[in-house]
Computed example of a mutant assay.
Amino acid sequence: MKLSYVYILKCSDNSYYTGVTSNLNQRIFQHISGAHTDSYTYKRRPISLVFFAEFTDINLAIETEKQIKKWSRAKKEALINNEFEKLPNLAKKRF
C-alpha cells in the first residue's frame, strides 16, 4: 500500500507552508537543501516540519492539502498543536 503525506513546515519568517508528497523524507530534504530555487520555502529557510498526516488515498491527501491551505493561521496552529477541539470554533465565520 502506497502512502501519501500532507505536511506543514514552519519557515524562518514564521509563515507556514503546506504540501503533499508520496515521499516525506525526500521532500523535506529538498526543502531543507533548497533543491527547488523557485519554491516558497527556498528564501524562508531554515524550515522545520511541524505536522504531517499519512493517507492511503492520494486523492484524499490532495483534497486535505487544499483545505488546509485555505485555513487561517490560528486553525493551522490548532492542528499542529493537536488542539482538535478548537477546530470547529475556528472554522466559524465571524461577523
Rank of each mutant, 00 (worst) to 15 (best):
K10M: 08
P46W: 08
Y40E: 07
R45I: 00
K76H: 02
S39M: 07
H36M: 04
P88N: 02
C11N: 15
H31K: 05
L24V: 04
D57Q: 03
D38R: 13
S72P: 01
F29S: 15
R44P: 00
C11S: 13
Q30D: 15
E85G: 00
K10L: 09
I58M: 04
N25P: 00
A61C: 13
E63Y: 10
K69W: 02
E77A: 00
S33I: 11
T18Y: 02
T41S: 14
K93R: 10
E85I: 08
F29D: 13
K86D: 11
I32H: 13
S72I: 02
F52A: 03
I58S: 12
F84S: 11
I8D: 04
T56W: 00
D13I: 03
L9W: 09
V20K: 12
A35N: 11
K86S: 13
N89Y: 12
V50D: 11
R73F: 11
N14W: 11
F95W: 08
R27L: 08
N82L: 05
S15N: 13
S48K: 15
E63P: 02
I47F: 00
L60R: 08
F84N: 11
M1P: 01
W71A: 08
I8E: 09
N59P: 06
R94I: 14
I62Y: 10
I8V: 12
L3Y: 13
Y42P: 02
N23T: 01
M1I: 06
Y7I: 05
K66W: 05
Q67G: 07
E85D: 09
P46E: 08
K86R: 15
V50P: 10
N25L: 10
W71R: 07
F52M: 04
R45S: 00
A53L: 08
D13Y: 05
F51W: 14
T56M: 07
R94E: 11
P46C: 05
A78R: 01
S4K: 02
I8Q: 07
A35M: 11
D13L: 09
G34Y: 02
K2C: 04
F51V: 03
T37L: 12
Y7N: 04
P88A: 07
I32W: 06
I68W: 07
L49N: 03
T41Y: 01
K70I: 05
N23M: 05
N89A: 13
H31P: 10
K92P: 02
K70M: 10
T64C: 10
W71V: 04
D38Q: 12
V6H: 02
W71H: 02
P46A: 05
E83S: 12
I80M: 04
Y16T: 07
A91K: 12
F51K: 02
V20E: 14
N14I: 01
N89V: 02
E83I: 04
K2Q: 15
